Simulated scan of single mutants.
Amino acid sequence: MGKLRAAFYSLTGCQGEYLTILGMEDILLDLLSLVDIAEFKLASSKEYDGKVDIAFVEGSVSTERDLEYIKRIRGNSKILVALGDCAVWGGIQASTSGQDPKELMRSVYKTEKNLYGFLGEHKGISEVVPVDYEIQGCPIEGKEFARVLIDLVRDVKPELPDYPVCIECKVREIPCLIVERGLPCLGPITVAGCDARCPSYNTACIGCRGPIRDEANVAGELEMLLRKGYDRERILDLMSLFGARYKGLRSLIEGGKS
């Protein structure tokens, strides 16, 4: 049996995920040698529009081109993996959800003309087509990508974190920054996988890994931080930075800014 064919595609994003992968110099060649690379735009100008076994996609669905492209990618791939917060949740740009697209154009480009075929909002890939696996983070963790790729090559279902950063704090015996210092830490609603890097440096989690899919209690987090004296709008802005399109959060944001 030959190698699986894999491709790395980009929608609207900064390609930080691919920079992370290409920066894994110590294992990069061995890792990517596990598959036949059909396309990897940041590493090569080669383009491929055929069938692949695994499609890795970064970036949000923000333009008409993105929408058409991701549908074609989905149709051409057996397994689709969303890489990074833009692909999973729409990214930081999704924090503009609900704002007037014409006003966004005016504020940035000084025109109301719909440049680049902007769809009016930034969506995660799963809002448009079925996604098999999601690797969260802004950017992703290289070791997590490596585990997923190896599992897929071995025909093993990847196991991705479905618990909060708080669990990693407990494992590493890091004092709770909410309890001990009263900081507005988003660890309780943010998916693990970073080894609680920021709390380990005594810095509150800002949620860059994105919310825990279907389980983040954003209303409870907001209520807790309000009791600690934090401003509602500040907390909602913080939560919306990486998770504006999370279920339940959009209504909280709209309610807090009305």
Rank of each mutant, 00 (worst) to 15 (best):
L4D: 00
A6F: 13
A6N: 07
A6W: 03
F8M: 13
Q15P: 08
Y18E: 04
L19D: 06
L19W: 08
I27M: 14
D36L: 05
A38M: 11
F40A: 14
S44E: 10
S45E: 15
K46F: 11
K51W: 12
K51P: 07
V52Q: 00
A55T: 02
F56P: 01
E68D: 13
V81R: 04
L83V: 07
C86K: 02
A87P: 00
I92V: 05
D100V: 10
K102M: 15
S107Y: 11
S107I: 12
Y109C: 10
T111I: 13
V128H: 10
V128F: 14
Y133K: 14
I140F: 00
E141Y: 14
K143Q: 13
R147V: 14
D151C: 12
D155C: 13
P161H: 03
V165L: 05
C166K: 01
V171K: 12
V171L: 11
L177E: 11
P184R: 09
T190A: 06
V191H: 09
D195N: 13
C205G: 07
P211M: 09
I212Q: 09
E221G: 00
L222E: 05
L225H: 01
K228F: 03
R232P: 02
R232C: 05
R234D: 08
D237Y: 04
M239L: 13
L241C: 11
G243T: 05
R245K: 15
Y246E: 12
